[in-house]
Design a protein around this nucleic acid. Structure first.
Length: 151
DNA sequence: GTTCTAGAAC
DNA sequence: GTTCTAGAAC
């Protein structure tokens, strides 16, 4: 098992789960890029955003609900967070980032780290905009094998 | 994804 | 001299 499967392995440990439902879980990012950084992952074996289609919309809503729940459970403020996916994911298993906007952390070490959450490399989950725009782009991706994030 | 580091850039 | 960048990691 290589490093790219670390998340898949992590969510098998009950002690790692902050909150969970029947189809998804929330864990703390092992290398947080801000004071608060959580990951929401489906239990289903979905490797990445590039494996999503419209049939996954209910699952995505569940991930978003758990994102809101973990912020509430931690007594934090939803408006202080960036919630979305990396456009160029490295780790196996789809994971929704829930990261506080302070970006104060020893693990935030270089420009690439910051860019991955603050440029077009970050694909925000913004409900309708996400569903209508990003999902269409995903379908486009399936056709062309190339994605353009126009926002 | 992180760590390490040689060579480049400043 | 210090910072930045890019590539290897068996």
């Amino acid at each position: 098992m290589s490093w790219s499967n670390a998340l898949v392995k992590e969510i098998l440990k009950p002690e790692s789960l902050i909150i969970s439902s029947e189809i998804a879980v929330v864990i703390a990012d092992k290398f947080p890029k801000a004071r608060h950084h959580y990951l929401v992952l489906p239990l289903a074996d979905i490797p990445s955003i590039f494996h999503l289609n419209r049939s996954h919309l209910p699952l995505l809503e569940e991930l978003h609900l758990l994102a809101r729940n973990v912020v509430e459970v931690k007594g934090l403020h939803w408006q202080d967070f960036n919630v979305g996916f990396h456009a160029e994911p490295s780790m196996q298993r789809l994971h929704l980032h829930v990261v506080s906007r302070d970006f104060v952390s020893p693990s935030l070490k270089n420009k690439k780290h910051w860019n991955s959450f603050n440029t077009e490399l970050f694909v925000p989950y913004t409900s309708k905009a996400f569903e209508a725009g990003f999902m269409r782009q995903l379908e486009h991706h399936e056709q062309t094998k190339e994605i353009e994030y126009s926002g």
